[in-house]
């Protein structure tokens, strides 16, 4: 049964960064066999599976690893360990969608599509639709530097959805642009949903997540705190937020310290030691 296949399988994905106080430490890290510098785990042992047609909201407070995860699913960042299996092509839509300011909108469409690995014929076929969706009028033949921020995000969004990805990752991209455009985007995403594509939706707006997604993935300091139906996860998350807001400054500080320690990997090493 093809429809039951997993679209995205994320297994034990860990993303480790090194924190350096000075640039010379970065050099030491490269030279020394054991490495150098403080570890920072942006993601730790993240595992989940998404099926075709799933619309998953990724929620979590600032710095919980939402953007890192979306970049890894999109294949832009390589994970430090673990694996990501995607059935088809993934496309990330972010506010800064990497347009070249010197070139016109039309040229940017071609450039971006070339960068994504499309050939001449495919690009020629996609171009009119993208231009129509972006709805920037005469500006399509003007350099992108003259665009308003709304026009830029419209063009970026138009390109990303028209390359017809199998997995779509939307990182806060709907927060710019006016209501008409947001509606247009939601329509497009609903169309994707009906066609059985997998969508990851990252937003700070719980309202948007609730209305649009069916599942939620709650990240906390780089780990999966909960994954399941919206109705199960979001109330827990809201409860956590309420508790967090209610904490005194001292408690907040303690909480943050605990999180920092965890992200430095101490707990992980302790777990490793326990396993031995």
């Amino acid at each position: 049964m093809r429809t039951m296949e997993h679209a995205v399988v994320v297994e034990n994905v860990t993303k480790k960064y090194k924190l350096f106080k000075r640039t010379s430490e970065r050099l030491l890290d490269m030279i020394l066999p054991g490495g150098y510098g403080e570890d920072f785990y942006a993601l730790r042992n993240v595992s989940f599976t998404a099926d075709k047609g799933d619309v998953i909201g990724i929620i979590g407070v600032n710095g919980s690893g939402k953007s890192t995860l979306s970049n890894i699913i999109a294949g832009i960042l390589p994970p430090t360990s673990g694996s990501v299996k995607i059935d088809g092509q993934a496309s990330l839509i972010a506010i800064s969608s990497g347009l070249n300011n010197q070139l016109t909108g039309r040229e940017n469409i071609e450039l971006k599509c070339l960068m994504l690995g499309f050939n001449k014929q495919q690009i020629r076929a996609m171009e009119p639709e993208i231009i129509e969706f972006a709805d920037v009028g005469k500006f399509i033949d003007q350099p992108v530097k003259t665009y308003s921020s709304g026009m830029k995000s419209r063009l970026g969004f138009a390109i990303s959805v028209h390359i017809d990805p199998d997995v779509l990752i939307i990182d806060e991209a709907l927060s710019v642009g006016d209501q008409t455009f947001a509606d247009k985007c939601l329509d497009k995403m609903n169309e994707f949903k009906q066609r059985g594509k997998t969508i990851f939706f990252i937003s700070h707006s719980i309202g948007q997540v609730k209305s649009f997604c069916e599942k939620a993935l709650w990240l906390e300091y780089g780990e999966v705190r909960g994954y399941g139906k919206i109705a199960d996860i979001v109330p827990q998350y809201e409860k956590f937020l309420k508790e967090y807001r209610a904490m005194s400054d001292k408690e907040k500080r303690q909480y943050k310290e605990r999180v920092m320690r965890k992200q430095r990997g101490e707990a992980l090493e302790a777990a490793k030691a326990a396993a031995k």
Partner: peptide, 9 residues
């Protein structure tokens, strides 16, 4: 490198 949005580029 930021322009490159695909691993297989």
């Amino acid at each position: 490198i930021r322009m490159v949005a695909q691993m297989n580029f």
